[in-house]
Amino acid sequence: MASRVVLVTGVADQLGGQLAARLAADPAIDRVLGVDVTPGPGPRDARVEFVRADIRGPRIAKVIDSARVDTVVHAAPRPSVGPRRAAIKELNVIGTMRLLSACQRADSVRKLVVKSTAEVYGASASSPAVFTEQDAPEQGHADEVEVEGYVRGFARRRPDVELTVIRLAEVIGPGVDNALARYFSLPVVPTVLGFDARVQLLHVNDALAVLNRAATHHLPGVFNAGGDGVLMLSQAIRRAGRVPLPLPRAAIGFGTRLAGRVDLSPGQARLLSYGRVIDTTRLKTTFGFTPKWTTAAAFDDYVHGRSATARF
């Protein structure tokens, strides 16, 4: 199914903004609408039609109807951390509900792509060594668990809409500004005493490529997306040239905020204790994509990019 009019939410964020630009460069796509409450700090691609709208409000339905949008890429969900946690959670959950309601009523919509996260699986002492797409989300550990619940409900009400859900591993790379990237940039990195978690990462370029492919190809289903291999947390800290500071588990959130004002979501804090690895067999076989960057290579590229930036 060729996508002609694509709407991307969350374009003020790096991933959503760059994805919209990639889609706009595709000659098979006629229009790309980028939706967010602000245009974001970075430069805007002139080919992306920016629409200032809050997906929690009624305007999103009018935008979808008037533009005859056939493909919606919901890239807006983000970790709800820091002093704006409640507001971000409302945007994630209520915003998704309103967006899906608008899509449900729009007969032009034929495809929905949802950016989710591997954080839906949780992280605990009882977690499997490797999570597959058949593993049920761990209730109550991420806004994305609620988001995916509403998405499944939408799929039942609109079975004619092709649905693709991408569960991303932790995204990293040059220029990425998220909690994990800031965590590894701390001069002294708080760790959980007695634990050395396995960490799986996804290079930002691979994350963009996966979401772009999901939006432009017939690939319904749920897919894990992560780089091959893992790094132990201690290895990552050494590769970043940082010094670990072991703390009791209960103090890890306070420690990261004290060390450098890094706010971790509850799921990210558990990740630093127990780690998380996802199986990407379906991504490579059914989805038809193999990440170009391994976990180690993605992390090293992040470190190199940070070092290069620091020199200027």
Rank of each mutant, 00 (worst) to 15 (best):
A123I: 02
V109G: 00
D263W: 15
R22I: 12
A251S: 14
V37P: 01
L201E: 09
R157W: 01
S116A: 13
G95Y: 01
V145K: 04
G229R: 02
N224Y: 06
T71I: 00
Y183N: 01
G194V: 00
T256L: 12
R47A: 15
G255F: 12
A197Y: 06
Q200G: 10
G34R: 10
V210H: 08
V93P: 09
Y183Q: 04
V32S: 10
D300P: 00
H304E: 14
I88H: 11
V176Q: 09
P220M: 07
D301E: 15
P244Y: 06
D196W: 04
G305V: 09
I60E: 08
V151R: 00
A87I: 09
L233V: 13
A240E: 04
V210S: 08
G175K: 00
R98A: 14
L202M: 09
G16Y: 05
I237N: 02
F223E: 10
G34V: 09
L7N: 11
R56A: 05
T295A: 04
A308T: 13
A21G: 04
V48W: 09
T281A: 15
F50H: 14
A155K: 12
H218G: 05
A136Q: 14
R167F: 02
V210Q: 08
Q14V: 05
G194Y: 03
F184H: 05
L258G: 11
Q139W: 04
D13G: 15
L233P: 08
L211Y: 10
G34Y: 10
P41S: 11
L99N: 06
V48G: 01
P27A: 03
A259D: 00
A209I: 02
G122N: 00
P41L: 07
L100T: 13
A46Y: 03
R282G: 08
R213Y: 02
S116Y: 13
G149E: 12
M232G: 12
L180C: 01
A250W: 06
A197K: 07
P248V: 11
R47I: 03
N212C: 13
F287H: 00
A236V: 07
H74N: 15
E148F: 11
K115Y: 12
G253W: 03
R105G: 13
A136E: 15
S3M: 14
A214T: 12
D65C: 03
